[in-house]
Amino acid sequence: MFKRSALMYQYDKTFNGFLCCIYSCCRLHEIPSGFCGNEDSLFEKREICTNHKVVTEMRHILRSRLGSNGFSLLSNAFLYGEAHKETDLLMFTLFALHTGPSAVFMRGHPLVARVCDMERGVLNEAHHFLGFIRFTDYGYALSAIIEPKHFVLPKIRTHFCDRFSGETFLIFDKTHKAALLHHSNILRIVPLDAFSPAQPDDAELLFRSLFQRYHTAVSIPERKNERCQNTNLPKRFRGQMTEFSFHPSTTSLSELSVHLLEKEQSS
């Protein structure tokens, strides 16, 4: 029997750290009153350290008890961007440890349904970002900024590394203060507090405005439908999207393009 504890679990907010929390719950037969990172709080806390040995063991146990589907469900749902997600994930894990691999398919069960919803939220947002990310091209490297609800970087890295295998690029997640870095086969997700991109060059400005022009021209005025646009592309994504947020400066753009053409011809 698990008993409710008045303690909060304090951990490093990583998935591995969370696995150690689950381990501790099972060992002490307790359900903590909540989870927190290293922020200050008035509650009494139990500090859970991320221990490599425990992590390996927990991964092994969870993979075999939850099945590979169950394990990936858990790790995907962990990326959900909500402050109190851990308790739901913990309850689901305890339920699944008890039930075995079939737990994942019991979608009528409230715990399973909740975790599946969380996973769906994460995967949907990650899929949106495959298309909605906008890179700035500096010639030698690409950079992008995103402001997602969920921690989607681990879910989009394979796609972009595969797509731009020869490029050096950085995707900065402003919400979670982390960045995905890629440089000739080296790939990392690292904590990063702030990132201020360099000034875009002329070519970059040209292509931004060309795309903006394209975006306007491709729409059919007779079919204008703002509601549909808003449903498919919610406003929260637009802050970092060239076609909505780029404001060309006062220098005339055709001047710019003529200038670039001349430069190209002379070289």
């Binding site: 729409s219 646009q229 449903t231 076609e243």
Partner: peptide
């Protein structure tokens, strides 16, 4: 290696125009 790009079977939407397409 040495190329640019890939293609996803499910298709990817990159933006939506004012007509919602």
């Amino acid at each position: 290696p040495g190329t640019i790009g890939n293609a996803a079977a499910c298709g990817i939407c990159h933006s939506f125009s004012a007509d919602g397409r």
